[in-house]
Simulated assay, not measured.
Amino acid sequence: MSKVKYYYDSESLSYKKIQRKKRTTIKYAIVFLLGSALFGFMFVFIASQYVESPKERAIKRELQNAQLQFELLNKKMKEAETVLADVADRDNNIYRVYFEANPIPDEQRKAGFGGINRYKNLEGFDNSKLIIESNKRLDILQKQIVVQSKSLDEIAKLAEEKEKLLAAIPAIQPVRNEDLKRMASGYGMRSDPFTKVRKMHYGMDFSAPRGTPIYATGDGVVERADNTATGYGNHIRIDHGYGYESLYAHLYKYNVRKNQKVRRGDLIGFVGSTGRSEAPHCHYEVFKDGERINPINFYYGSLTAEEFNELLEHASLENQSLD
């Protein structure tokens, strides 16, 4: 029950009851409600600044965890960048040098992305800078990996071609050392056995008994196995690819046929003295891009250093050839 209030009326010299008007009551009620609402708002505001709700604490933990994950990601990207830089260095300075390929410039390996802002949707957040930088590094790293991957694919193809080239180059003697009587004549100016006139001898003559095996000096395809070339008698010509060819002349008989594939060391024929020949021997020639070259430079696959020096000494003697 609300208290009844009175006031003293000096005219009537008596106390009279205070009659509160409805308007005043409503006014006081409104002021009270507004004050209460303002106080409540201030309380909630102050509490929100200093007191975290369970939901806020959970969100804060998630943000901290996300930040930690980004920091770990950056650390891993740094390690990956270090490894990739080492691979790129070896790629440029070892692999590509060995296979005679141009190195990939750093500008191409580490190029960024031009044009539009790729990270606009990541702006406006508390950790936008961290997120954007991480995404930039990741994109550049991915691009570098693609460049390096393509480079290694190219190196693999070059290695395969190099292996084929090394197998194709004529690199052994056509007649084994143990089967040789002697190195009869080398490449250069020699006396013709029939006319005794000095002329260019374009091959090397390996003297050996009739029927001695003759071997392919490199991988290739038999281009000819006949006796239709003047002076060579029974002879074999092998196309090794890459501009290389080899010729084996004055054979007793063949062990291959035209268009047959052969590997280095395969038995292809036997020493004879057919054609323009003075004695049983294998006349051997090497061609590069259609030009005859000195076969002495192509025996690294079958001779020791001492054997090669001895062969070089005999080949340099300006004696008489056997054809």
Rank of each mutant, 00 (worst) to 15 (best):
N74P: 12
F298V: 00
H283G: 08
S134Q: 12
G220I: 09
D205F: 09
S10Y: 04
K5P: 11
I131V: 13
G272C: 03
E123F: 01
A279I: 11
Q260S: 14
P174Q: 04
F32P: 05
S316I: 02
Q320E: 15
R176Q: 15
Q148K: 00
A66M: 11
G243W: 14
E52T: 14
P105D: 08
A216C: 10
I296Y: 04
R23F: 02
K181Q: 14
G35Y: 00
K196E: 05
K16E: 04
G243Q: 13
A305P: 02
E123L: 01
Y187T: 11
A101C: 05
H283W: 06
Q69P: 00
N121T: 09
E307I: 09
V222M: 10
P103G: 01
K143V: 11
F287N: 10
V222I: 14
I131K: 08
Y119V: 05
Y202M: 06
S273C: 04
R118S: 11
H201D: 10
Y299H: 13
L72I: 01
I145K: 15
P295Y: 15
R210K: 05
Q142I: 09
G124F: 12
K27Y: 15
Q142L: 11
M204L: 07
R210L: 04
Y242A: 12
E178R: 05
D86W: 09
R90N: 03
A208H: 03
E178C: 02
M189K: 11
I293W: 09
G275S: 13
S53N: 14
D9N: 15
K60W: 08
H283P: 03
H240V: 14
L13S: 12
E245H: 10
N135S: 12
D192W: 08
R96S: 05
D323G: 14
I132A: 05
L130D: 09
T228S: 12
M183G: 03
D139T: 13
E81F: 02
I145F: 15
E310H: 08
S12M: 02
R23Q: 03
F45N: 10
F99A: 01
Y299L: 09
S151D: 08
F194H: 02
N93K: 04
I132W: 06
E310N: 12
E79V: 12
Q69T: 03
Q67H: 06
T274R: 01
V44M: 13
P54T: 01
E123T: 00
L73K: 07
K150C: 11
D323M: 06
A208W: 03
V271K: 00
Q144F: 02
Y50T: 07
A216P: 11
E278D: 14
M1D: 12
S2C: 05
K76A: 10
L312P: 10
V175T: 02
L68K: 15
